[in-house]
């Protein structure tokens, strides 16, 4: 048995610690890390633009369309838009109900507040559409899906935030 072990140990010392793959694996790696890098930066840029646009919308965007009717100003929570978000049905239901309530009572908001709400919802909905398009190009991009969920949560937060500005809304939901 000792002879066997000696032979094994002897053979082990001759094992080559370098074996070249039979094909060049770099192109596959490069494709993945380039995709990853692109996705990462797209996410960072999209997140920055998104955050900045919400801020700008809240602070300085003036009423952009005085003729916009109140009823059509609030976007509908199109179920199709949710398809990539991974948000559960309960969130979608609450989201839709909040938008419906806002649409019903938007006229009760002060004019300036109303215009800010409308402008911000437009910005967020445009961001959501862009993120959905990006996900169609990169279906496995986890960051984009996270960004999409953030966008919906932000939209709901804005709707709920402005509900506090509308006494009618407060009454109807409490």
């Amino acid at each position: 048995m000792n002879d066997q072990n000696d032979a094994l140990d002897q053979a082990l010392t001759k094992l080559d610690d370098r074996i070249e793959p039979q094909r060049d694996l770099w192109p596959g790696i490069e494709a993945k890390i380039s995709e990853r890098k692109g996705g990462f930066w797209q996410w960072r840029v999209a997140a920055s633009v998104f955050a900045a646009s919400v801020l700008v919308g809240l602070l300085i965007i003036p009423p952009d369309d005085a003729t916009t009717t109140v009823a059509s100003a609030v976007p509908e929570a199109d179920e199709e838009l949710f398809r990539y978000s991974g948000l559960d049905a309960e969130f979608v239901r609450v989201h839709q109900r909040s938008l419906d309530e806002l649409a019903d009572h938007l006229a009760d908001l002060q004019p300036a507040t109303r215009e800010v709400v409308i402008a911000n919802l437009k910005i967020i909905r445009a961001s959501i559409a862009e993120i959905n398009e990006a996900i169609e190009r990169e279906p496995n991009n986890v960051e984009l899906r996270q960004l999409l969920r953030m966008a919906y949560e932000q939209e709901l937060a804005i709707v709920n935030g402005f509900r506090r500005s509308a006494p009618t809304l407060e009454r109807t939901t409490t």
Binding site: D16, D17, R18, I19, E20, P21, L25, W26
Partner: peptide
């Protein structure tokens, strides 16, 4: 290029 033979082995 430097390290792939070790990892592949």
């Amino acid at each position: 290029r430097t390290h792939v033979p070790h990892i592949y082995a």
